[in-house]
C-alpha cells in the first residue's frame, strides 16, 4: 500500500510540488474569498438583528435572530413603497433590456452581414459611444427632457436605457461568428426575404449571445443610479437603488431606518445574485468576447 501511494503522483509531473506550493495558493484564495464575502456576510447578519443589537453586538455574528420581523417591517414601511421600488427596477431593467437587446441585435447583425458604404464609420461611431461617460450624457439629457416635459416620468429613465452601444458591439461579433454567410445566401436563393432571414434564422443562431446581451444591459440598468437621481423627484417612480439611497441618506435623522436600509439591501441583492450564479455561463461568453476582440 505504501509503495502504491508513493508512486501515485503523475510520472510526467516535472515540477517539484512541495507542500508550500500546493497549500499556499489555496490559502491565498481562501483569504481573498473571505474578504470578498465579508460585506455580504455582514449584510446578512446585520439584517437579522434588532436595532439595539446592531450597535451593541459584534457585527459578524448573530444575536437575537429576527430576520422575518425585519423583512416585514421593511416591506411595510412607508405604505409598502419597497415593493414599488422593486417593481420599478424590474420594469426599467426588464423592459429596457428586452427592447434594447432586440434593437442592438438588429443593428449588430446588419453591421456584420451587409456590406455598405459607411459601415465601418457607423460602427466606430457606435463604439465610441461605449467610451462616453454615462454621467456626461445624463446632465444634457435632463435639460432636453425638461424642455419637452418628460422629466420625472417612467420614460425619462426607460428611454435612454434602451441604447446599448456595447450590445451592438457584442451582437456584431456574435453575428459574424455564428451566422454563416452560406446559410444566408442559400435562404436568399430559396426566396426568403431579408427580414425573415434575420427573424427566423439569425436570431435562432444568435440566441446564446442575445441572452448575454440582455444580461449585460439588465445589470447596467438595474445598477443605474445617476440617471434616475437626476430625472426623478417622485419617489413612487424610484428604482430600488435610488429608493434605498434615499432611505440611507435619512438614517442620521431617523436611526430606525438603518435596519430597513440593511434588510432592503439584502432583499434586493439576493435575487440578482441568484440570477447571476444560475446564468453565469452566459457571462463568461460575453466577457470572453470582450477580452479577445477588445
Amino acid at each position: 500500500m505504501s509503495t502504491s501511494v508513493g508512486t501515485a503522483p503523475q510520472p510526467t509531473q516535472k515540477w517539484k510540488r512541495g507542500p508550500l506550493e500546493s497549500v499556499l495558493p489555496v490559502a491565498v484564495m481562501f483569504t481573498a474569498m473571505a474578504c470578498f464575502m465579508l460585506p455580504l456576510w455582514y449584510l446578512f447578519v446585520a439584517s437579522s438583528k434588532n436595532r439595539g443589537d446592531l450597535t451593541t453586538t459584534p457585527g459578524l455574528w448573530f444575536s437575537h435572530f429576527q430576520l422575518g420581523t425585519n423583512v416585514s417591517d421593511t416591506v411595510n414601511r412607508d405604505g409598502g413603497i419597497f415593493w414599488r421600488w422593486l417593481l420599478n427596477s424590474v420594469l426599467y431593467a426588464g423592459v429596457g433590456a428586452a427592447i434594447g437587446t432586440v434593437i442592438a441585435a438588429m443593428a449588430g447583425y446588419a453591421l456584420a452581414k451587409y456590406e455598405f458604404r459607411g459601415r465601418e464609420a457607423t460602427f466606430n461611431t457606435i463604439l465610441a459611444g461605449v467610451l462616453v461617460p454615462a454621467t456626461a450624457l445624463a446632465l444634457p439629457l435632463f435639460l432636453i427632457f425638461a424642455a419637452v416635459g418628460l422629466t420625472n416620468t417612467y420614460w425619462s429613465v426607460l428611454l435612454p436605457s434602451l441604447v446599448s452601444p456595447f450590445g451592438v458591439y457584442l451582437s456584431r461579433i456574435y453575428a459574424s461568428a455564428s451566422v454563416p454567410d452560406a446559410l444566408i445566401e442559400a435562404a436568399r436563393l430559396d426566396g426568403v426575404g431579408e427580414f425573415r432571414i434575420f427573424l427566423m434564422m439569425a436570431t435562432a443562431l444568435m440566441k446564446p449571445a442575445l441572452v448575454t446581451i440582455f444580461l449585460f444591459q439588465f445589470v447596467v440598468i438595474w445598477n443605474n443610479f445617476f440617471l434616475p437621481l437626476i430625472m426623478l423627484v417622485d419617489r413612487k417612480l424610484f428604482p430600488m437603488t435610488l429608493g434605498l439611497y434615499s432611505w440611507n441618506s435619512q438614517t442620521q435623522q431617523d436611526p430606525t431606518l438603518a435596519t430597513a436600509v440593511l434588510t432592503g439591501a439584502l432583499l434586493s441583492v439576493v435575487p440578482i445574485i441568484a440570477a447571476f450564479l444560475m446564468l453565469q455561463r452566459y457571462w463568461r461568453g460575453g466577457l470572453g468576447a470582450g477580452g479577445v476582440k477588445g
Binding site: F36, L40, N223, L242, V261, I273, Q280
Partner: peptide, 15 residues
C-alpha cells in the same frame, strides 16, 4: 470573487 459585481454600486457603497 465575481459575486460583488452583482451587487449594485449604490448598495455596495451603503453596506
Amino acid at each position: 470573487y465575481f459575486v460583488p459585481y452583482a451587487v449594485p454600486v449604490v448598495i455596495g457603497a451603503i453596506v
